[in-house]
């Protein structure tokens, strides 16, 4: 892959900064998301909360759903493929989606390998729980990272954990000497080259977004204040009682994440958020964030 291709991929991620990417399952929802000011939509067959409820194998959305959504909005359309399912990714690329999320929300297709994302012209976003995982995905060609959080729970605690882990590991690297970086690379399971780059810049080499458990404008602003550059909202919009007004409120909260007065006003008058799930009630084998390495 040429240097220009990498720049075009991370370039689109740059354009999405300070914005909200919303999960949608049909053209009507996609329109609501675009009207609310979403910077992109994620085309899905079921939102994570329903995937969690229904169980079974979750796969790439149908071609018809994705095409239907691409037809009605002018903003970028993303879609998810299963971890390691490079043929789903090939189909998504040929559909012309603008970004592929190789996502732990779907059932993994490969327990050992992720997709080699350098093989594709379309950019990929991947989830990570910590810095090592993020750097391994970047080594495979991911143009954007996001926290995994715990999708479909309406509980922000895991996304916070992942973002804090990432930030504190980046800070730690910045303070290390050259010989210590070699050891850090070994511990992180990441390439020394990337570890050196992160230590020097004090940030990931690709944009770093938040995802997993965002249910309110305050959740979205929290992730931004913790260092996220944009926010994915999955079930949080369309599993709430007021999708259109909540979507607008979350968009405004991400732009003005540092302004408590605006955050107060956008939080006013919203109906009930999606019901949340306590982490302790989710058995380890049902936690989506454990998928992938």
């Amino acid at each position: 892959m040429t240097n220009n291709e990498i720049r075009l991929k991370t370039g689109l991620a740059e354009m999405l900064k300070g914005g909200v990417i919303m999960d949608v399952v049909n053209p009507e929802q996609a329109r609501i998301a675009e009207d609310a000011g979403a910077v992109a939509v994620m085309a899905l067959e079921r939102v994570p909360a329903d995937i969690r409820r229904d169980g079974g194998v979750a796969r790439m959305a149908s071609v018809e759903i994705i095409e239907g959504i691409m037809k009605v909005v002018s903003i970028p359309v993303m879609a998810k493929c299963r971890i390691g399912h490079f043929v789903e990714a090939q189909i998504l690329e040929s559909l012309g989606v603008d970004f592929i999320d190789e996502s732990e929300v779907l059932t993994p297709a490969d327990e050992r390998y992720h997709v080699n994302k350098f093989d594709f012209k379309v950019p990929f976003v991947c989830g990570a729980r910590d810095l090592g995982e993020a750097l391994r995905r970047i080594s495979e060609g991911a143009a954007m990272m996001r926290t995994k959080g715990e999708a479909g729970t309406g509980n922000i605690v895991e996304a916070v954990r992942h973002m804090r882990a990432m930030t504190s590991e980046i800070k730690r690297l910045s303070a290390l000497g050259e010989e210590e970086l070699v050891n850090a690379a070994k511990e992180l399971g990441a390439s020394l080259e990337l570890v050196r780059l992160v230590a020097k810049d004090g940030r990931l080499p690709v944009p770093n977004f938040a995802a997993g458990g965002v249910a309110t404008p305050a959740d979205a602003a929290l992730m931004m204040q913790l260092g996220a550059e944009s926010v994915f909202v999955g079930s949080g919009i369309f599993k709430s009682e007021d999708p259109a007004s909540r979507a607008k409120a979350v968009v405004k909260a991400v732009t003005h994440y540092n302004d408590p007065e605006i955050l107060r006003e956008v939080s006013r008058g919203l109906l009930n958020a999606m019901p949340g799930i306590e982490m302790q009630t989710i058995p380890a084998e049902q936690r989506l964030a454990q998928r992938g390495w």
Binding site: M15, A36, I75
Partner: peptide
């Protein structure tokens, strides 16, 4: 981001991004 900040500058760069989202904001 806000009107008060616009009054404080001598020129303005409008970046790339999504124009539909910016219009809403």
């Amino acid at each position: 981001k806000k009107l008060s900040e616009l009054s404080a500058v001598d020129g303005l760069a409008l970046p790339g991004g999504e124009s539909t989202a910016m219009l809403k904001l």
